[in-house]
Simulated assay, not measured.
Amino acid sequence: MDVCVIGGSRYFGRRLIGHLRDAGVRVTVLNRGSTAPPAGVEQLCADRNDEAALRAALGERRFDVVVDQVCYTPVQAAIAARVFAERTRRYVLTSTVEVYAETGEAPVREEAVDPSVWPVDLALPWGHPDLVEAHYAEGKRQAEAVLTRAGGFETAIVRTAHVVGGADFTGRLAHYVRQIERGEPVRVHADPQPASFVQEEEIARFLAWTAAADFTGPVNAASDGALDVRELCAAIGRVVGVEPVLETGAQEGAAESSPYSFERCYAMDNGRARRLGFEFSSVAGWLPQVIKEARA
């Protein structure tokens, strides 16, 4: 199998590349070249936002599968759809639980957001970083919609839960570990809602599995067992040996200082992945080790 990974220079993207390579897959990484790829992996350098440069970097190459780790807007998706039409038979988009932010359903299932009918507005200034950051979830929803409706390849969408563990550059879990170890109060919402999580190694394995699969459409990628921020803090407290101090704050302040405290439920139903043949592990099984890693 010949796979192109767009992005993949950090976090679980590098693990994904390693899984594919170690399984005997020929892997090509396409990114801006700021980080060298792992040994045995080819690298193509281009800015994915520049369609002409992207076409030039690819030349006549074709792939069995493209795994897109860094598509955040419908404009990026539209460029990819044009460039990779007839260059690949399968396109895997790494998406996010954030697409469910406005649904209110719990636990959320894939059909809550249908990319085949989601409205797309390519005229918005998607090239502006502030817009992309402020409308991250909507950018992902519209990117899903563009790729789902594209011709020339089949599309699978992996909606990831909150990824923790390993080389987590966000520092969100480490933030809680530091505060609890120091005995500092953790601010939470008055009624925090549960969220799903997935371990870095497991989401990389799932993406590699998805690349070799043949299903289409969205699939939730989450470990069994959702946690709210109070339960997460209790688990951290058991590992570090300190009783967490929780402080209820104003909703806005709590959200700013406590990144896993949510007003909405972000628990995901992973039943479709199971029916397709992938069994996720339980968050209770891997969380203690991930907390220990976050202490380092």
Rank of each mutant, 00 (worst) to 15 (best):
V99K: 08
E247H: 12
V188R: 14
V198K: 02
Y91W: 07
F206W: 00
L173S: 10
G165M: 14
V67C: 10
A123Q: 07
V186K: 07
V83P: 11
D121R: 04
L173C: 11
V229G: 09
C4S: 09
A226R: 12
S116V: 12
A101N: 13
A226N: 09
Q76F: 07
V117D: 12
M268E: 11
V146Y: 11
S258V: 00
T35C: 13
T94H: 01
D191T: 15
V240K: 06
R32S: 12
V283K: 05
R21F: 14
A222S: 02
S261R: 09
A143M: 08
W118M: 07
V283L: 05
F169G: 12
R264Q: 10
V75W: 00
H19Q: 06
R149D: 09
D2L: 12
L54P: 13
W126H: 06
S258E: 05
V245Y: 11
Q251A: 15
E263K: 04
G285R: 12
V29D: 12
D191V: 15
M268V: 15
P218V: 08
Y91I: 00
A208K: 06
Q142L: 10
L173G: 07
A250K: 08
V132E: 01
T28N: 00
E279I: 11
C4K: 00
S223N: 11
T170H: 05
V290T: 04
C265Y: 04
V120T: 03
D214T: 15
